[in-house]
Amino acid sequence: MSITLAVTAGILFAAGTYLVLQRLLTRIVVGLGLMAHGANLILLGAGGEPGAPPIVGTADPATFGDPLPQALVLTAIVITFGVTAFLLALAYRSWALTAEDTVEDDIEDRRIAELRRREHP
């Protein structure tokens, strides 16, 4: 893994985190997407240096990139795809129900927190 890759992944995670730490669902989904990209880069980089596509017969096997992380990343990408699609449907549904694109606070929690504030102003 090169410094560039590590730093890029770090930036993706930082940007993703920044977006996730608020309440607009669309931004959260985008943030999660950035984090997933970052994770994929880390996993890919874990295979070591870049190499030739691991397709037997196209190059010297010694120059191949590590195929295992590639397979793992592919799996991860597809999983993320499925979950993201679901999350978008959720956002869609949420909008249809409440006309809001936010993750609301938990009502019951707020009640207990309120209780505390009232008792200990």
């Binding site: 770090g10 930082a14 608020q22």
Partner: peptide
């Protein structure tokens, strides 16, 4: 995007983001 009142301030969010990003990069190295 509607501008929402943040529960976490901008600086706080940036701080957490930097910790996370920094960790990932550092751990990767």
């Amino acid at each position: 995007f509607e501008e929402q009142p943040w529960r976490l301030g901008r600086a706080m969010r940036a701080g957490v983001a930097l910790v996370v990003g920094g960790f990932v990069t550092a751990a990767a190295l």
